[in-house]
Computed example of a mutant assay.
Amino acid sequence: MDLPPLSREQLAAVVASAQSPTELYSTLSEYESEACLLSTSDATQAELLSLYYSTFFFSHLLTDQICEARLSTKRMPQDLLQNDPSLQNCLNLLRAVWQRKYEQVYTILRALPWSEPLKPIVQSYDAHFQEKTLKELSRAYEAIRPAAAATYLGLDPASVEQGDPATMQKFIACGWTWEEETGLLHPKPIIEAPQDDTKLYNELSEVMALVGSRRV
């Protein structure tokens, strides 16, 4: 079935109707050949290209295709990539994710300016990255200091150091245990169930609903 022509309205419709990150990525992939025909010298088309490539970039990250995300930046119009604020933010985010600079990832997602159409997918990736990191921590550590765990998950390490019970409760709610004598948290490995392809912005687990409410 032929897709409607690429436009800001169509991009918004694609994001809103996607039943999963995989579906979003697949649909946006079909628009890449059309995007290649647009000109960056036309201001309206350049704005559309910025929104399309930024959204397509995040669809790579939401499906954990980090290498493919790097390759996608090579296919973008390089003059637009070097001068467009949203695409520059995407490049900075890619570097931080690739280099596993957790604090920087959250700072880029939460502190840098993102256009209004991109904010929902930026927030979705924030939650996705946090959930993914939580699962990695649960498998990698038998014990971890609360402030370090908070930093990995984009929570406030200072509040943990001050003994904030609300922040500590977020870890305990994930099944982790707190050993007061040593000052260590003991993660509980999180068993991943088969992922249900529900609405794009509602696919996160109840665990991350508990963990994700506190921001740095």
Rank of each mutant, 00 (worst) to 15 (best):
Arg95Leu: 09
Thr27Asn: 01
Asp42Trp: 03
Ser72Tyr: 09
Glu34Met: 05
Glu32Ile: 00
Phe129Leu: 06
Ile121Pro: 03
Asp64Arg: 05
Ala209Phe: 01
Arg215Asp: 01
Ala12Phe: 00
Gly175Tyr: 01
Ala166Phe: 04
Glu68Ile: 05
Thr63Ala: 08
Gln88Trp: 00
Glu68Gln: 06
Glu206Met: 07
Ser138Pro: 06
Thr198Lys: 01
Cys36Trp: 01
Tyr25Asp: 09
Tyr31Asn: 10
Trp114Arg: 06
Ala173Gly: 13
Ala158His: 11
Leu49Cys: 12
Gly163Glu: 07
Thr44Arg: 08
Ile172Thr: 11
His128Pro: 04
Glu179Cys: 01
Glu203Ser: 15
Ser138His: 06
Ser33His: 08
Thr27Leu: 07
Asp64His: 09
Glu181Gly: 00
Leu61His: 08
Ser86Asp: 10
Lys188Glu: 03
Thr133Pro: 05
Glu68Arg: 04
Glu206Pro: 00
Met76Arg: 15
Ser159Arg: 13
Pro189Ser: 05
Thr63Glu: 14
Glu131Pro: 12
Leu137Val: 10
Asn92Thr: 14
Asp2Glu: 11
Ala35Leu: 10
Gly163Asp: 05
Leu3Asn: 11
Thr22Val: 06
Leu48His: 13
Asp164Ala: 07
Lys119Cys: 13
Cys90Asp: 14
Leu137Tyr: 04
Trp98Glu: 09
Asp197Ser: 12
Glu68Lys: 05
Leu137Pro: 12
Glu142Tyr: 00
Gln45Thr: 10
Ala18His: 05
Leu153Val: 01
Gln123Glu: 14
His186Ala: 06
Asn83Thr: 14
Ala149Glu: 02
Gln195Ala: 11
Ala150Pro: 09
Glu203Phe: 08
Thr151Asn: 04
Phe56Arg: 12
Ala46Gly: 11
Ser33Leu: 13
Ile144Thr: 02
Glu180Ile: 12
Ala96Cys: 07
Gln10Glu: 13
Gln78Phe: 05
Asp196Glu: 13
Thr167Asn: 06
Thr133Cys: 03
Lys101Ala: 10
Pro157Ile: 06
Ala150Phe: 10
Leu71Glu: 09
Arg145Met: 03
Ser7Gln: 05
Asp196Pro: 01
Gln88Arg: 07
Gln99Cys: 09
Thr44Gly: 03
Ala173Cys: 04
Val15Trp: 02
